[in-house]
């Protein structure tokens, strides 16, 4: 009697059979189909055009500034050749680009790791307790409204000049989206998910770990991603309060005094590249994996 029903599910079964056939024949069923390859190629071309547009706009502005104001303005060729030299080991602002990048990444990683731990714990607590949410979200929204640069004097008053102040600024800008999304994601989990767990006699820990967290996984990842970008973008502000002038942000800040604008542009490009890499590779990949684990993608 049940068997007849399966006719309805023919579409689904065909896909599964195709995958099984592919496995039997020893090829991966994730293999790119021609349409997929064409799509990826078109995508790559579009991205290349987009990047070219940015570089052209930059170049036009640079030449215009040089012509109109008679001032110096780094052009793309100047900048890219400086970038090439920097990658070859030439020192800018007293250190190699690798040293600057590593210092920046360590600070930012530290601030972000703190934001992750504090933000996820606070978000989970707020998400499950109504009163804590109503009260706790008020300071979170206030903190969120404070622009990155505005943290500089606050950080200096609390920590003085140095690493702690820098980490603090990154923490404060990365924290709010993590808390907001974690708490919001848990609160928005369909009530029926909790009901199923409760009727099955699950305790609150299982309800939390096996149901609420997976149900909120996508908003939580989104919060982590926004927090990450926030922290990265505030890097310059954060490194302004550093005593020692190392780091990508510090080098950009330093160009105001040293007038070494080409180095500043090199650092801007490195910051963009790292940000894009993390955003597009790490987070898009992570989201894809989680979507799949959550059973949200058609391909099972």
């Amino acid at each position: 009697m049940w068997k007849a029903d399966r006719v309805d599910d023919k579409g689904k079964m065909d896909k599964k059979e195709a995958a099984e056939k592919a496995l039997r024949e020893g090829r991966s069923h994730f293999e790119f189909r021609p349409e997929t390859r064409r799509f990826l190629l078109a995508n790559a071309v579009n991205i290349a055009i987009g990047i070219a547009l940015v570089i052209i706009a930059w170049w036009v502005v640079a030449e215009a500034m040089i012509a109109v104001r008679g001032a110096f303005f780094p052009t793309p060729p100047e900048t890219f050749s400086a970038l090439w030299e920097a990658l070859g080991g030439a020192k800018i602002n007293g250190a190699t680009i690798y040293f600057h990048t590593r210092s920046s990444l360590v600070r930012w990683g530290l601030g972000y790791a703190l934001a992750l731990v504090i933000g996820t714990i606070a978000g989970m607590a707020f998400g499950t307790m109504g009163r804590a949410y109503d009260i706790g979200m008020v300071p979170v929204y206030i903190v969120q409204m404070i622009p990155g640069m505005a943290w500089v004097p606050i950080a200096m008053l609390i920590f003085g000049l140095g690493e702690s102040a820098t980490v603090f600024i990154i923490l404060m800008t990365a924290l709010p989206p993590i808390v907001i999304n974690t708490a919001g994601g848990i609160r928005q989990a369909p009530p029926i998910y909790s009901r199923v767990a409760l009727m099955s006699g699950k305790d609150h820990f299982s309800l939390f770990a096996k149901v609420l967290i997976p149900a909120a996984a996508l908003p939580i990842i989104d919060g982590m991603r926004i927090g990450l970008a926030n922290g990265w973008r505030v890097l310059i502000a954060a490194e302004m309060v550093l005593g020692t002038m190392v780091g990508l942000g510090a080098t950009i800040e330093d160009s105001r005094y040293s007038l070494d604008f080409v180095s500043a542009f090199v650092c801007i490009i490195v910051i963009c590249l790292i940000g894009l890499t993390i955003e597009k590779l790490l987070f898009s990949g992570l989201e894809g994996v989680v979507r799949n684990r959550l059973g949200l993608e058609e391909e099972g």
């Binding site: 029926i192 998910y193 009901r195 199923v196 409760l198 009727m199 099955s200 006699g201 149901v211 997976p214 149900a215 996984a217 684990r293 959550l294 059973g295 949200l296």
Partner: peptide, 20 residues
């Protein structure tokens, strides 16, 4: 006093966890 495994519910809306 509350839900219990002694009483099983089949809900109107789909209630399976999509990640399991």
């Amino acid at each position: 006093a509350g839900p219990s495994p002694e009483r099983g519910v089949v809900f109107q809306e789909f209630s399976l966890y999509p990640w399991m």
